[in-house]
Amino acid sequence: MTGLITEFLPALRDPAHPVPAGLHDGAGRPAGRRFNVYRNNVLVSLIEALETGFPAIRSLLGAQNFRNIARGYATENPPEGPLMIRYGQHFPDWVAAIVALAHIPYLPDVARLELALRASYHAADHTALTAEDLSAVSQDDVERTPLALAPSVHLMRSAWPVVEIRRFALDPSTAKPKGGAQEVAVIRPDFDPVAHALPAGGFAFMAALRDGQPLGQAADTATDAAPQFDLGEVLAFLLSHRALTKGTPRQ
């Protein structure tokens, strides 16, 4: 008996592994390179999924370099389930561990940003909180108003200007990236997520909301983190990009 798991699978995963003996062509001859169709289908489809999921990394590395790196990742990291829309969760760490890429230190963060954009794209829809909703709250209650981030909002910190690096990688006709560390929010107003570099204290404020702090407390947290935090500016930004929803009051 040709075991699917004991024989077929090891040969599928390792091209150096012999093709199982119980497989043949229509005339009873050993399957030989026919088995490679399955090896190729698996590997090529995973590489293509990574090309689709990490277009900025592909642009930064070049198509051939990217394929080589993606092949290594796909060989060692088959998907953990049949949802290919989630494939590549460990790719940033994989890229970070490649010594030959150490001279491009921002690559892992650009890959993390691309993962965040994809997760946002598929995240749950939300009913956005509007400025009118907020102005309807009495002045006395504003401080205690629970707000929540939309489920499609993702936050990340980087030592690099990742938003601009990604933009430039996808469109070299735009301005060259400048500057240093960034705090980033991926926000999806309707269907298309956009990565934004946040103003001072914006990250701390949003992280506090995500942790369940009401508006007043989150603003204090943000001011502690960055004295120049401007609540009005950040709130207007979040409302206009439909990043907030109604939160649930704390018990």
């Binding site: 290919m84 829309i85 598929h122 995240a123 749950a124 489920p151 499609s152």
Partner: peptide, 30 residues
């Protein structure tokens, strides 16, 4: 498997298309 996210454009487009066309679901990962 392409419509197993929580929301966003894929689900919204599918919901709209299902009002206009008979839709068949074809699984590739079971």
């Amino acid at each position: 498997e392409n419509y197993m996210g929580a929301g966003g454009r894929p689900i919204a487009q599918l919901r709209e298309l299902s009002k206009r066309f008979p839709v068949s679901v074809h699984g590739v990962g079971l």
